[in-house]
Design a protein around this nucleic acid. Structure first.
Lengths: 197, 197
DNA sequence: GCCTACCAAGCAATTGCTTGTTTGGGATAC
DNA sequence: GTATCCCAAACAAGCAATTGCTTGGTAGGC
């Protein structure tokens, strides 16, 4: 069972497709674009994949599962709420670094894709994501680690946007590492969110 | 010269097109979509406009000119750097409220459009925008109104993203007014940016 | 000799846009 | 008053290009 090498070409094509989806959007990337980038003809893609849809599906699904596994591990740990929040933010920036295409696709095309039954799971995961983050924020407030007068829902959007929008300018291998960016972001953010002491 | 009513139908169609461009992106909106929403046939659009491109062009160009006029006025006023920054942020949130479609289109499609000669002005205006905002940030740092240890470029991105990304969730006529959101955003932000005293 | 990876050709649907024509209401001429 | 003209606004039909995807076949390594 030579699994490791059997999946190679397929994964290669997936990565190429992901990069293009991320750059120009799912709907604005043609199967011929993908094939050209891979050096083959568009019809040949269908030897590997059922459809263009199933390519994004696979990209987003596997990425999200990995990310949530990390989140769950952090939440289940015995750190303080604020420390958990810190870890979750760092894990998210690490995801932007390691899975740049997938994050960009999610940012740009999730709303559209979610209108199809096949991608209904995106909506559920989004809710789960929101519950997890707002939960941590509330716990941190209750623990006295964050200001008590915060509008948690608004802070959630603020935090979420600030983190994920970074995919639009952060480039893996650039001047700042993902964790350095995370450190600076958290510094700026916490000076406003942390209770004064 | 009944100018006021002569331009009405055209403006109506522009607004319809803008809304659709904002919702599903420029490239993913067909001229038939626009025509359907307007209750006419796609060919009839070409009585009013040269092309689909010229519709976005007109939408973005006029909007940006208005916005920059406001920015320039604020910058030219005799307020302190921090007060100017405050005003610029509020003006931006007001723009999200008053020109929701245009902001959304700019957020989503500017990068793509900017690859065409016709939309080269988007790149220039973007540079001008960055200079204006980073200039204000630097002045505020120099004036002692903001922390001196800030990475101004990073703060700029942070600020810019935080403001404009709001177009993805803010809905005119919703619970919070644009200025209320601006106030809360500034509060959260400044507690981290303002020099401690 | 089978299986992975691909090519070659093409189909039905959708795209932006063009062309020629029709409609209906207001200004103008008589 | 009414006949004439005009013109904005729309329709009807279709064209060339592009879209996702299908079908049937081929090359080459294990």
């Amino acid at each position: 069972m030579p699994e490791a090498s059997t999946t190679t070409r397929r994964d290669e094509l997936l990565a190429i497709a992901g990069k293009l989806f991320a750059e120009r959007g799912f709907r604005n990337t043609t199967v011929r674009d993908i094939a050209d980038a891979a050096g083959i003809l568009s019809g040949s893609l269908y030897h590997h994949f059922d459809s263009k849809e199933s390519m994004v599906d696979e990209l987003l699904d596997t990425f999200q599962q990995q990310l949530f596994d990390q989140y769950d591990e952090i939440v289940a740990s015995d750190r303080s709420p604020l420390e958990k929040l810190d870890a979750v933010v760092r894990a998210s920036f690490a995801a932007i670094d390691a899975h740049h295409s997938e994050v960009a696709i999610f940012q740009n095309d999730a709303d559209f894709l979610a209108t199809f039954d096949r991608f209904a799971y995106l909506i559920e995961r989004n809710k789960r994501f929101q519950k997890l983050w707002t939960g941590l924020l509330r716990e941190a407030v209750d623990a006295g680690e964050l200001r008590a007068d915060l509008d948690v829902e608004l802070v959630y959007r603020f935090l979420r946007d600030t983190v994920w929008v970074a995919v639009s300018w952060y480039r893996p291998g650039g001047e700042l590492s993902a964790d350095e960016v995370a450190t600076q972001y958290l510094s700026i953010l916490l000076e406003g969110i942390a209770s004064h002491g």
